[in-house]
Simulated assay, not measured.
Amino acid sequence: MSEYLRAGLRLVPPAVGWQHTIVAADVVLGDHGAVTGYSAAIGRPTLLATFPDHDVAPGSVIEALGKSAPHVDFRQSLHEQLHRAIGDYEPDQFHTVRELTSSIPDESARTLRQVFYQLMDLPEPDRAAVVRPFDPSELTIEDGIACAALVSAELSSDASVHVTRWPADVTSHHSALHEAADIHLVVRSDHPQRDLLTHAAILTHQNPPNDMHADQALAEIMANYPACRLAVVANSERTGVLRHRNGDTATAEVVDGPGDVALAGSAIHAWLASGRPWPTLPDKIVITHGPFRTSIQLSVTVPMVT
């Protein structure tokens, strides 16, 4: 799963954590496994990505799931299908799944404890059986960080840029995205895949060591990666320094909205691609990405000419 983790996937452990996840989910996309069945049984909008009918027992809860849950059409937009599953969900959609999952809802703790003590030939405690809630702190997610992205950045005004990002680790390098003129590759400098690093138009460096100045980190990026046109050194997630290969430099700070300074790199890339020179960059630029709006403050400098 390493490529997908580098694309931003958050991976839930297989044994503990799926319970917390389906309780919190807005929509579940699954297969013919038990977790997908439980998701539908507790009332979560549920879709099926795959469903091998020959592996499903007739009359089972999973067969009922296959008959009541929509199946994903991978020729269509997954984004739209997920939202449709939420919008079209009816409370009784998985009525049969829920009935087959348990004939004694809310009584399983009492019934199971009774069976366990009978099997051990011990007297059952006279207090009520405890149903312990799932503690969020017990869920330890393997949290992926997006390390490489194919980015489309389009100027919508003199101080506004629309950015769309696709995870480069799981997007074909021969896809039509690469053929589009406005697509550029943004990669973190610690990415393990060398071909992505050597083809990146923008390279980002996260939190340089205390003994390394931002100027040194920027210089090393430019020296080590000749294809890089713009380097970004992030002092934190919301502040950083950007330098073009010709020496033009700017500092950036995210002042409003979610986002990171790498967004500023893509905005500047779009600015320069439109034929506008570096010194004319605005003091503040608004970037829309997905449903978000991020405001970034820029402070531009140009190299001294002697």
Rank of each mutant, 00 (worst) to 15 (best):
A168Y: 08
A168T: 02
V170E: 06
T171S: 12
H173Y: 09
H174L: 12
S175C: 04
H178K: 07
H178G: 12
A181D: 09
A181Q: 09
A181G: 12
D182I: 02
L185A: 04
V187I: 06
R188T: 03
S189G: 14
D190I: 13
H191P: 04
Q193Y: 09
L197W: 07
T198P: 08
H199K: 12
A200T: 03
A201G: 09
A201C: 12
A201K: 07
T204L: 04
Q206V: 05
Q206C: 07
N207S: 15
A217I: 07
L218G: 06
M222H: 15
M222G: 14
M222D: 13
Y225S: 08
P226Q: 04
A227D: 13
C228F: 04
V232P: 00
A234L: 14
N235S: 15
S236E: 05
R238P: 09
T239K: 04
L242K: 00
N246Y: 11
N246I: 14
G247K: 05
D248G: 11
T249I: 14
A250H: 01
T251I: 08
E253D: 11
D260A: 15
V261K: 00
G265Q: 03
A267M: 03
A270T: 01
A270Q: 01
A273H: 04
S274T: 08
S274Y: 08
G275T: 04
R276H: 11
R276E: 03
P277N: 11
W278R: 10
T280S: 14
I285W: 00
I287R: 01
